[in-house]
Design a binder for these strands. Structure first.
Lengths: 183, 183
DNA sequence: GTTGAAATTAGTACGAA
DNA sequence: TTCGTACTAATTTCAAC
């Protein structure tokens, strides 16, 4: 876990330096490093790129409602859209959320109306723009929990343990969602 | 741009190998590599970790409505929550979306009811679970556009250029959103 | 922007604790 | 499993062009 912690912050660190930071021998570090890769615990190493500097200043989220039984086709079309950085199937009102990076607002419009709307699997979409990315951590690890600062409890009117439940809402899966799962 | 393309796929490649793949000399590759880092175009290198193998099998999205003028406080609290991997301010119905990785469903509940609900800045939340992460590309680049396969146009009933606009919906910013922006 | 050669560092193999 | 060491291969640095 310590190795993962170091590597997510500096993916280019040498194995020797890694060994030193984690407190194990060089040879051992090589063994474990290889084991983590072989295991799939580390999927790949990547460079984090500044989108704005790269010319893709606009980020949008598109929530998609997918027609049942057409999930496979939707997936295939997704693979053909290079501007999509992330796509997840979700519970709730919509079936999937996709995140796209493009150069301008017009490109979002084109993307949604020309590309997505032409996919029969897409029943409806809802688009929101990302105004600011407040936080992006490189892959959360279980060990982070221990480092958590205690929540700055502002003892509200509620008794300890009680919580203003009216504040929040959990959204369950819509009907027929099972059909959307990977075949 | 070619350098970025290589590095986002293999963040640990040696500069020599990078030079070869891009078709420039080593010394030149070193110069450009350094320039990209110094410029901030490359923000950092990181290891992509398999959350499930790391013991964080549950991913959820929490859409948060933030009380106006309390954005700064919300930010501060966010920094104290290690299970948050990503947070963005959005247009639309909600003000922010945060993505969390935890070990089980109960942890999501704890997170939302204990941690988030105790932040005065949080007016309301809406939680959805991620059932499957279909696609995660390491940082989209403008050059990807050129590699885009043409959309598999299924000539629907619409005339060319026309689109079933009823399918989609753009969601504008809620009032008072400007107040949420970074101070 | 390139090449080549020296200095440094990375990666491998293997025996011992 | 982990460590230490010796050995080989590769990378980085720095020079001149």
């Amino acid at each position: 876990m310590k190795i993962l912690e170091v590597l997510r912050e500096n993916g280019r660190i040498s194995v020797s330096a890694l060994a030193e930071r984690v407190g194990i021998s060089r040879a051992n570090a090589y063994t474990r490093f290889e084991a983590l890769r072989a295991d799939g615990a580390i999927k790949r190493f990547t460079a984090e790129i500044d989108h704005v500097r790269a010319g893709l200043g606009i980020t949008a989220l598109i929530f998609v409602t997918v027609r049942q039984q057409m999930w496979k086709q939707f997936r295939a079309e997704l693979a053909r859209m290079p501007e999509v950085e992330y796509c997840a199937i979700t519970t709730g009102q919509h079936d999937a959320m996709i995140q796209v990076r493009v150069s301008d607002v017009a490109a979002v419009h084109t993307m949604v109306t020309d590309r997505l709307a032409n996919i029969p699997a897409v029943k409806a979409t809802e688009t929101v723009f990302i105004l600011d990315e407040v936080l992006r951590r490189p892959y959360v690890l279980p060990s982070d929990r221990d480092k958590a600062a205690r929540p700055a409890r502002r003892p509200a009117q509620e008794a300890p343990g009680e919580v203003p439940l009216g504040k929040m809402r959990f959204v369950g899966a819509a009907e027929g969602r099972a059909a959307l799962q990977r075949d």
